[in-house]
Structure formats: C-alpha cells, structure tokens
Amino acid sequence: MITAGSWLMFLTLFPVAVHADDASFVPETVSVKTRISPGPNVVVNQMGMASSTLYIYSARDLTLKGSVSGGGWGLSTLSRDGNTAYMASSFFSRITYGTGEDVLQIFDVPTNTVKKEIRLPFKITQYTPDAAQLRLSADEKFIYVQNATPATSVTVVDLVNDKVLQEIPQPGCYGIYPALQGHGFSTICTDGSFMTFTLGADGSTFTSRRSEKIFDVDSDPIYLASARAGGDLLFISYNANIYRLSDQSGVIRTVSVTSLTRGIPGNWGTSGYGVLGYNAADNVLFVPMYPNHHEGTHHRGGKQIWAYDLTRRTLLSRSPVDDISTIAVSSGEKPVLYGLNMEKNLIGEYAVDKNHGFSLSKTAEHTDFGFATMIMGDL
C-alpha cells in the first residue's frame, strides 16, 4: 500500500523537474481563412436527399478549397466569372419528408458564404442533377428553374429584384437551354421537337414556337447534356450522333447530324450523364464512350473518352478511362479535362496532349465526396 508518507518520500528522492519558460512559449493561434485561394475552380455538385453540397476544388491540382451547402436534390449553376454559385433545393420539416419549401440560394464563391435567398414555388424537379435544370439568362439578370410535379414548367426568377416573375408551362418538354442574346430558352420535347420560349424585356410575358421534329425519340434519343460551339447548340444521342442545332431565329433548326462511330467496330455508344466537353480554342469535342452499346447501357461510366475535331469532322483519339460518367473541359489554348467517376465518387484531372490527337493522361484526382453527377467551373 502506498501511504501519504511514502508518496512524499518518493517525491523527495525523485523530484519532478518542471522547466516552464514563459518567455519562449508561443501559443498557437487558430484562425479561419476568409477567402479561398485565388485561381480557377472546378465545382462538384454532390446531391443528397436531405442536403446537397458544392465542393470547390482548384482547377490546377484538385486541392479542396471549400464548400457550400443547401437542401435536398440540389440543382446548381455558376455565374460566367465563377464568383457566384446558385443552388435551387428543397428543405423539409422532417429532413426527408414533411412540410417543405424550395429555395434558391446565392453563394459568394471566394468567401464560401450565402449572399441571399429567394423562396421558390414548391415544385422544383427532384431528378438526378443536370446542368440543363438550372440556367442563367445571357445577361445573368434572370435564372430559370426546372419544375416537375410531374407536370413540367420553368420558374423565371428576377435576380436583380430578388423575386419570382412567372411560371412558364412546358408540357411534354424538359431541360433549359438559354438563348445567347435577350431573355429566353429552348427545351427538348417528347415528340423529338424543341420548344423555344422568348420572354419580354421585364420577364413577365412570353411567346413560344415549336420546331420541326429534330430527332427520333425511339431510335436515336438524345441526352440532356449540351455544349455551345460557334453560337450553335450541340447535343449527342445514345448512338453517338452529334446534333448541331441553331436557335438564332427564335426556333430550333438542324444545322447538321454527324455520326461519331461510323466505320468503327465494337458497337460503341455514348455513356454517362454530362457527356459533352467542348474546347472552343481548337473546336474539339470530347465524349465518354462505352463498348457493346445497347439499350440500358447509356447510364454506365465510359471506358474511353473520344476527342473529335468538329472543323474537319475527324476522330482524333480514343483515350482509355475508368468509368467516367461526366466531363468538363477548359476552353483555352491549353485544354484540361475533368472527369467524374460516379461509382468511386472520384474526380480526375487529365492533361490533354494536342500533339498526339488530344489524347488524355491523368494528372490528379480527389475522392472525398458522395453521389455526384455534375462538374462545373470557370474554365
């Protein structure tokens, strides 16, 4: 047994030396970075039933810079300069059910803070997030929100005065493809046509025009994914046919339809979600592709990414990749491609070798997010 006396004797025989030099001790200061590091960003939209998050990465090396969060089934888009992020999402009183409200949140990207909120009609679409569901007008004064109850419509929001202007019915149509000038957008319809809506100057009125049949919904359906090339809209079908369309006249018309796979064995087809990446400087289109393509494989991650020269209508390269479902490509003279693997919750950065047919090689990756189908960026 250790008594008080024996304990005191122990301390006497074996003194404990304490040399605290107050003058040399510098306590650690914990602070919060008020702004993320400068430079271009890549943003991954992680969708959740209760909460959705935009993860902001450096476009140079995929270093995580920060994040902002909203409600369930978050739809998102970025301003042209990349400094403002928008998320339309649903908030429920019991997290995943109960009384709900839909809210448009407007975030300041450099500081990762909420700038403002605008309450929306409680009817935004709850579908796998896609860039075509939340889009800004050409002058970024309006934002268009895809609804589905399941009846489809688009809510028009005035971002200058922070108010909802109107709801535009789009029966049998889905997706939002804004005009390059003025206020308006086109949408894909279930009969293979497009409907184009032209808004009045104050956004409170509209007129509409339906196109002729553009594609066959049974034999050659197209993805929601799109790109702009020289003012035209680019879409691609499950069978890898590139539809180049013009909306300059206020109604969609076909410019050209080009097969990406003609003469190539292996029954390749387009595969994934965000399946178009366009580099404007070289007029090159990138597409994730899947072999032995058949009905039902369109959602699988691509096994190759093909680079296609739209000027010469020539296939430039076929780069092997690991189940890439969504891509985004920078627009400048030195393109970089970003690819999303949905199975592994992984975003990869790929260098583009212009001297070898715009072929790809992975240079970085990041994996700390959940289910995601969208990549955005000021690229």
Score class of each variant (00 low, 15 high):
I242S: 01
I242E: 05
I242A: 00
Y243L: 10
Y243V: 09
Y243D: 12
Y243R: 05
Y243K: 07
Y243C: 07
R244Q: 00
R244I: 01
R244E: 01
L245A: 14
L245F: 10
L245G: 14
L245Q: 12
S246P: 06
S246Q: 02
S246M: 04
S246H: 00
S246E: 05
S246D: 05
D247R: 01
D247P: 00
D247E: 00
Q248R: 03
Q248Y: 02
Q248G: 02
Q248D: 05
S249V: 05
S249A: 14
S249T: 13
S249L: 15
S249R: 11
S249E: 13
G250N: 00
G250K: 02
G250R: 02
G250Q: 02
G250L: 09
G250D: 05
G250F: 01
V251E: 02
V251N: 00
I252E: 04
I252S: 07
I252K: 01
I252M: 14
I252A: 04
R253S: 15
R253A: 15
R253Y: 11
R253D: 15
T254Y: 12
T254N: 13
V255R: 14
V255E: 13
V255G: 10
V255L: 15
S256M: 07
V257G: 06
V257T: 14
V257E: 14
V257W: 09
V257K: 08
V257L: 02
V257M: 09
T258N: 11
T258L: 10
T258H: 12
T258E: 11
T258W: 15
S259T: 11
S259D: 07
S259I: 05
S259R: 09
S259L: 07
S259K: 06
L260A: 05
L260M: 06
L260Y: 06
T261A: 11
T261M: 09
T261D: 08
R262E: 12
R262C: 07
R262S: 10
R262Y: 14
G263Q: 15
G263W: 15
I264A: 10
I264R: 12
I264D: 13
I264C: 10
I264V: 15
P265M: 10
P265W: 08
P265N: 06
G266M: 14
G266V: 04
N267V: 01
N267S: 03
N267R: 04
W268M: 03
W268H: 04
W268G: 01
W268I: 03
W268D: 02
W268K: 00
W268Q: 00
W268L: 00
G269K: 00
G269S: 02
G269N: 01
G269V: 03
T270N: 07
T270L: 12
T270V: 13
T270D: 10
T270S: 14
S271R: 01
S271L: 09
S271C: 11
S271F: 09
S271W: 11
S271I: 10
G272W: 12
G272Y: 14
G272T: 09
Y273T: 07
Y273C: 06
Y273S: 12
Y273F: 13
Y273M: 04
G274V: 03
G274F: 07
G274T: 03
G274D: 08
L276V: 08
L276H: 04
L276N: 09
L276R: 04
G277L: 08
G277V: 07
G277R: 06
G277M: 04
G277P: 05
